[in-house]
Design a protein around this nucleic acid. Structure first.
Lengths: 227, 227
DNA sequence: AAAGACATCAAGAAAATATCAAGATCAGCG
DNA sequence: CGCTGATCTTGATATTTTCTTGATGTCTTT
């Protein structure tokens, strides 16, 4: 399993690591494990996990200290495992930035539910990816195109074409590249499509479609979108 | 005290409410309390608390149902209190969108630490429980829809569809996204459902259903609700 | 001036969407 | 238990949009 969310387990007990590896991997997680706090910190930096499971009783440095050091640079959701059930320990861990605190022994079901809950908090805000050139604006995250502030309607193919150009803005894309990306490898000879669809795009986006300033033709080579 | 974070306590036991009010107010929280689930939902909409503490055993509707109804329109951090310690209850609550789950009796210290942890997660989303566009208004907290001030009756599926669009107002939702969210992952191919139900929604909400101004079709892609 | 590459326009084909209505299912109720 | 009304599902058909294709015109280079 190396497709699901990446989990970093920091625990010195082999049995716990083994148990978590088997259980979580069979539930679609990609599990990485280390036995010490220092390893944990460096592994977290390198791995950029989606979730950290941190045992409080580590051989080298205190779990609380590991958590503090992690929180200096990352907000990755972190769930604490501990044998200690006292309030004061829970309070200390949560206030140091833990997202949740489970007392050993814990049930796998509860751990996984709390993992899902912790992960929900981490959803990165839907930053809208904006492209702007001249009087044309494209919001790739919303699939929304405007010209002079007015919404522009594009067909699926037109939009796919425009998006490809934006992703390579400023650079020339050859006929073959474009055809392969938008229509598929079996269409690389259909250069006529390009003429038809670029004409349509210019019609919808250019001030004067016969004197394009945004979508430029590179004769004999391909097309280019100004950056 | 009416300056700190606003907390809404939904619990039918007077002693618990009293205890929480005194304890939390003396720690700088602004505490509001209700005794039933339905009150809780409407109070949450009106008050916009920073945090909700929800008891699972309520006299009118099940706590889990209250949580689900809250999660239809708000992501306010919500901590569950319950007498039940079984995994299955915890898992159900956390998967329904709870941020944390405490078993009674609990310690005030731990509760407050978990409250602080839960609040850290809160990223206020630009969601309101009221949606308005054109002559249509939707109150998500009451599941109440009006057109020109007149109540509109929607079937459960129609409402689920509308709610999804509202939660993503202004951006295109693809056919698959909609089908997965409203009908479930096994329905992602049933694009015909979309036609039928969008027709019904337009019939009920649009001025002229054949010239929709609210629910727009993006051919080949999906649908979009105007923002 | 001719050839090759590109642009434009338009019409038929294909795909996607809208509409209408009948059968199936389900929940509440006498 | 069967009835009733509401909702969901399914199918048939109409309408709209998009894709594909061909014909024709223009520009540039040699």
């Amino acid at each position: 399993m190396n497709d699901g969310p990446r989990v970093l387990v920091i625990d010195d007990e082999v049995q716990i690591r083994r148990f978590l590896r088997i259980s979580l991997e069979s539930n679609g997680y990609e599990v990485h494990e280390v036995a010490t706090g220092l390893e944990g910190i460096s592994r977290a930096a390198q791995l950029r996990p989606d979730l950290i499971i941190l045992d409080m009783g580590l051989p080298d440095i205190d779990g609380l200290e590991v958590l503090r050091r992690l929180r200096e640079w990352t907000t990755t959701p972190t769930i604490i495992l501990s044998v200690r059930d006292a309030d004061i320990d829970k309070v200390a861990a949560l206030d140091a930035g833990a997202d949740d605190y489970l007392t050993k022994p814990f049930s796998l079901e509860e751990l996984m539910a709390r993992m899902r809950a912790a992960q929900r908090h981490f959803r990165p805000l839907p930053h809208s990816h904006l492209f702007k050139a001249g009087n044309v604006e494209v919001d790739l995250s919303r699939r929304y195109v405007t010209r002079d502030g007015e919404p522009v309607k594009l067909t699926p193919t037109e939009y796919a074409l425009l998006r490809l150009l934006i992703q390579h803005a400023g650079r020339v894309m050859t006929h073959k590249q474009i055809l392969r990306e938008v229509w598929g490898p079996e269409y690389v000879e259909e250069t006529h499509y390009l003429r038809v669809y670029f004409a349509a795009l210019r019609q919808k986006l250019e001030e004067d479609p016969s004197l394009p300033k945004l979508i430029l033709t590179e004769p004999g080579v391909g097309y280019r979108l100004v950056a």
